[in-house]
Write a protein that binds this DNA or RNA. Structure first.
Lengths: 248, 248
DNA sequence: GAGGGCGGTTGACCCTGATCAACGGTCCCT
DNA sequence: AGGGACCGTTGATCAGGGTCAACCGCCCTC
């Protein structure tokens, strides 16, 4: 796949050689059509930890894909607090909810040094008719997004602290794995503070809960380095049956 | 608007004369094009309280709009419990998340005797090219759906019982009002059980919380009949600033 | 109209997780 | 190396809401 039988310029090579190709937008595109898509994709310069990719209310020009690093989507509350409503890992698409009114609904902050690709809405829509599967692909991403929200809603609804944390870790692990990373041992991109916020808990509770899972030898923990020692017991702690799907 | 200068058959008159027209799919359609849309809309027979409109996993043929009554969208858990992830009032669209893979992700249950209109996905997509605004319209509905999830996530994240109940009522009222109903006095379509489930609380807590709001003369309550006596105090209870938007 | 089921309310008690507080380790900066 | 900020952990206490239980009123059926 790395050998080229055509004169590919660096632009056209972007997607074709990207490790995330099969998970990303191009998944709906035939190999020979790929260069056409690649023309409308732009790489961003790296974004530092803690800095905003975009702010809610700003005009939105396109959709983003995480190339490396990770982002959190947050809703700012009137009292100054923030509520994290989404976490985006490499290969995941975000910002789609701005497609309708061309305006961001959320703030997006890099959780670490990160990079994205962006695709312009206008250009994306302009090629919908040429790539009918692409329209479907985008719809699919949106509905996937909705489904993910539903899952999180299940997590937040009347579940204990252990269940929330365990479920979160299982999903996080699964998402990493589906993206070609190691799902058993990883660096959490979220701080305890962000984790607590996302799970609707308090920072001390998260710390204690993780501590407990560590004591039970279900996890190995060193700050943000997590290693899952027993998926079986972690699933138990999460309150999901063995074999039951954990996400979506 | 009720006078007709063209020979409208009963089919074509459906949307043009529907009280929900401006909130529904036809909002993106010019008046003269409306008959074309109406051709692909089908009215369902009434659905009894408690019966399923569709089940998760079933093949999905289209999207639904509540004509009258209301529905809940639920996610069935492995242990038999259900989690309510959405409530749909008249004029609201649901089932869009099945568009991508032509399969329902959720179960949908009528909360009372209800009726829907349905629009076939295939037919909807087939007229996308003729009505470019319609594609945008559908995208808009999806992203609105996502935004609504985000709001609910804010509601569920580290908020007290009173805040949850008050916020829910404010939003419910607002949705009714935007649909042309009276927003100050209404019959809640959800049982206390469903309400508790949706808000991530216990049924007794919901009952007590509503009771407290009643004692403070913020609400008048008779079972499911709710009358909001003071929006100002209800907003206080919900923890939102006066003037701050309550939904989305 | 007696009986039973269902939905909702109220009371008493208890437990999970929030809150307040102090401490330890790591990183960064000079 | 010292100082300080930040992140995470741990302990002690407290309260919001979960849990268990009884009860009430409405509706339905027979």
């Amino acid at each position: 796949m790395t050998s080229c039988d055509h004169k590919a310029d660096t632009l056209a090579r972007r997607c074709a050689h990207c490790s995330l190709r099969r998970l990303c937008l191009p998944a709906g595109i035939d190999r020979e059509d790929l260069p056409n898509l690649e023309k409308i994709v732009r790489k961003s310069p790296p974004i530092d930890e803690g800095s905003f990719l975009f702010h809610a209310g700003e005009e939105s020009h396109g959709v983003y894909v995480v190339r490396f690093g990770s982002f959190k989507s947050i809703r700012m509350l009137a009292n100054g607090d923030e509520q994290i409503v989404g976490v985006h890992l490499p290969g995941e698409v975000f910002g789609l909810d701005g497609m309708a009114n061309r305006r961001f609904n959320l703030d997006s902050v890099a959780l670490e040094k990160s990079g994205v690709c962006s695709v312009s809405f206008d250009q994306l829509e302009s090629i919908f008719d040429r790539f009918p599967t692409l329209n479907r692909q985008v719809m699919g991403m949106m509905s996937r997004e909705v489904s993910e929200r539903h899952s999180h809603q299940v997590l937040m609804g009347r579940r204990s602290a252990v269940e929330r944390v365990a479920l979160f870790l299982l999903r996080y692990s699964e998402r990493l794995e589906s993206r070609g990373f190691v799902g058993t041992s990883f660096a959490l991109s979220l701080s305890r503070q962000d984790l607590a916020n996302y799970l609707g808990l308090q920072i001390e509770t998260v710390s204690r809960t993780i501590g407990k899972l560590k004591e039970q030898n279900i996890l190995e923990v060193d700050r943000r380095l997590i290693s899952i020692e027993s998926f079986e017991h972690l699933r138990d702690a999460a309150g999901v049956d063995q074999g039951e799907a954990v996400s979506f």
